[in-house]
Write a protein that binds this DNA or RNA. Structure first.
Lengths: 240, 240
DNA sequence: GCAAAAGTGTTCATTGTACACCCATGC
DNA sequence: GCATGGGTGTACAATGAACACTTTTGC
């Protein structure tokens, strides 16, 4: 049972990642389904090696799932309730997957390690959804991009983690001007506006938005993008 | 050697606190000097009991030093470099305090526990400096409020922790409107302005400041405050 | 030409900044 | 009265919001 293998990790500390992407005019989040019977959905998580910076650990976990080495991420909150344990979740998982040797599995030293109280450091990442080369980690069965408002039921406190990540993203998008990381390298102003409108959940006046974004002075205007549509070709932009 | 006593704490995780106060028109930070030879100054820190929420742990640590039960605090950052260890600091401390039995002390199991790599969760607190009833924790020799720009040399990465706390405070003061926690329950507008001017490190036009703060709609105006000064008595305010 | 969407400019409202002015207080 | 600092109002500037207008593109 690989999931219980404790390598040279720090005990009782984990990293939970919320990976945001943007597609079909919607903010999406990447949610793996883990490779056990019972429809368990969990945010991408992992542990920290003894000799590893937590930031490096987060990048490692993110690369494992997305294949992306360069990834924009922000540490947003630590979750540290005393009752934050995998106990219930694991017992349900084991009962559905190891019917014959339920008690055996629980004697595995990894079980105690894994079901202990854990403090989790939350990171959110913003990725260009087209660049993600989905890779299944050892415990994943599959994964999928879900509309932010329509995710499957997540295990443990992961719904709260997701909620807090979204809250942090909303707060950061102005001050850190980081929404561009959700887009391809080159993008149109319309695409930027779609991202903002989705995150803010409201419509923005196009012409004012363009002026506001350009006044941030973080984009450079490139060639025009001829789409074949019967309208004026928009400019492409790139982050400076 | 109490400092090495490992009770029922979570391993490799600590909490570091930056306690801000305001006095003499200056932003101050409370820094204990620890009770060993060698002038070691360390931010108030502590560990998390197995059955304790991290937020409760932070409050406990803050109460230990300040005597305050109700305290405003914000989790601001996690410090998690792989080389984040007390090794060097402890070796220096031991060499200055246990000259005769240096090697003995190092064999204490607590030594290994304490000098291991630690991940630290940073909290900053805002307190009414007059209300703080200084209490020395087990390892403190004394402590003092220092001007934010004129602290003694701190151990380990505590200078960075302090710097990041200050950065977080600057970012939060607008959005969270939390500067009032640095003042007594009742305060004048002038005092609020002093806080802002100190944190922003620049002067603000008095009359505009007053209007801006009142427009936040978080204060209620109380009676006038007769100071004995030969000028108009200012109003007192209180947080709603 | 026409529809569609991009880009620019103009107007008006809101907010922010600078400062004048008046007010209460103690000597 | 007078100096001192508090409180309010006013004028101008900067920013933001709403919208008209022009431009480009494919049919």
């Amino acid at each position: 049972m690989n999931i219980l293998e404790n390598k040279n990790f720090i005990d009782q500390v984990s990293i939970d990642c919320v990976i945001f992407g943007f597609d079909e005019n919607q903010l999406k989040v990447l949610i793996p389904k883990i490779n056990f019977k019972g429809d368990f959905y969990a945010l991408p998580s992992g542990f920290i090696y003894q000799e590893e910076d937590i930031e490096i650990a987060a990048r490692r976990i993110l690369e494992e799932r997305t294949g992306l080495k360069e990834i924009y991420m922000e540490q947003f909150k630590v979750f540290g309730k005393a009752n934050r344990k995998r106990q219930e979740f694991m017992d349900e998982l084991i009962s559905k997957n190891y019917i014959d040797n339920f008690e055996e599995v629980k004697k595995n030293p990894g079980y105690a390690w894994f079901t202990n109280r854990f403090i989790s450091i939350g990171y959110y990442a913003l990725v260009n959804i087209k660049k993600v080369k989905p890779r299944l980690s050892a415990i994943d069965h599959s994964f999928q991009w879900y509309d932010i408002r329509n995710t499957p039921e997540l295990i443990m406190d992961h719904p709260e983690v997701l909620k807090e990540a979204l809250k942090a993203l909303k707060e950061d998008i102005e001050s850190k001007a980081n929404a561009f990381h959700l887009l391809p390298e080159k993008f149109t102003m319309r695409e930027v506006q779609d991202v903002y409108e989705t995150i803010y959940e409201k419509e923005i006046v196009r012409t004012n938005f363009q002026k506001k974004i350009l006044s941030l002075d973080v984009l450079e205007r490139l060639e025009k993008k001829f789409t074949g549509a019967k309208n004026k070709a928009p400019y492409l932009y790139r982050m400076k």
